[in-house]
């Protein structure tokens, strides 16, 4: 069983509405029953509604696997970086700290790293991963490239990310504007960027303060 080549994972954090459907659905996955592997964060809770759902990007050269002293993280022939092999993982936390996307979770109590494995039980038989099957805004989508091109005119997928001097290529794609300048997503250059939103709430609060004055 392998993930069909025509089907790919596309993430578009800009479309995320923070509904947490993916978080709930993820916990249903048979490979990590009861635990959600989705990392869903509010970036600046007090001022912005911006949220980011992060799934494993399944790097072509996974840093998590390379820095694993126990050789517990394996990549399948079809490019899925699997969660730690239970007999081997020694819970050193190297993978959690080294993953450039901040994906793995660590349970020291049971001596095991756990992470998204793209619902391998589902995707390997051509089904959508749990998160993509429930995401109402399709910030997390599992489809063919042709479907994505039809549904997202003006956008295209890229799978190259820059972290300082290191370029990482992934199996999972991110949707960026369909422009020649967007060949690679430079993560470190955006590190100190502000969150995105509308200053509506700030205006409301400022108005209140003025009224009290």
């Amino acid at each position: 069983m392998t993930v069909p080549e025509t089907l790919e994972f596309f993430v578009d954090p800009g479309r995320c509405i923070g509904c947490q459907s993916c978080v709930q659905a993820c916990a249903e996955c048979d490979t990590h029953k009861g635990q959600s592997m989705i990392q869903l964060d509010y970036l600046d809770r007090a001022h912005s509604t911006q949220t980011v759902p992060v799934v494993c990007m399944h790097c072509e050269s996974p840093t998590c696997a390379e820095v694993c002293p126990a050789d517990a993280i394996k990549r399948t022939e079809d490019g899925v970086v699997q969660t730690a092999r239970k007999p081997r993982c020694i819970a050193c936390n190297n993978c959690v700290l080294a993953c450039p996307f901040g994906v793995p979770k660590m349970s020291t109590r049971v001596n095991l790293m756990m992470k998204c494995d793209m619902c391998y039980d589902r995707t390997s038989v051509g089904l959508k991963p749990m998160c993509a099957s429930v995401c109402p805004s399709q910030a997390l989508a599992f489809a063919t490239r042709a479907e994505m091109a039809r549904l997202r005119p003006g956008a295209r997928p890229v799978n190259a990310f820059q972290f300082g001097a290191q370029t990482i290529r992934t199996k999972v794609n991110m949707m960026v504007p369909d422009e020649p300048s967007c060949e690679i997503v430079d993560v470190t250059s955006a590190m100190f960027e502000p969150t995105i939103g509308h200053d509506i709430l700030d205006t409301v609060f400022e108005g209140d303060e003025n009224e009290h004055e």
């Binding site: 800009g14 970036l43 911006q50 949220t51 980011v52 450039p100 901040g102 504007p177 960027e193 969150t195």
Partner: peptide, 18 residues
């Protein structure tokens, strides 16, 4: 950079592109 800030930077990078 801590893991949550890596995830935030990931979103910021896409925001910057758009």
């Amino acid at each position: 950079i801590c893991p949550p800030c890596r995830r935030a930077s990931f979103a910021m990078a896409q925001g910057l592109a758009w």
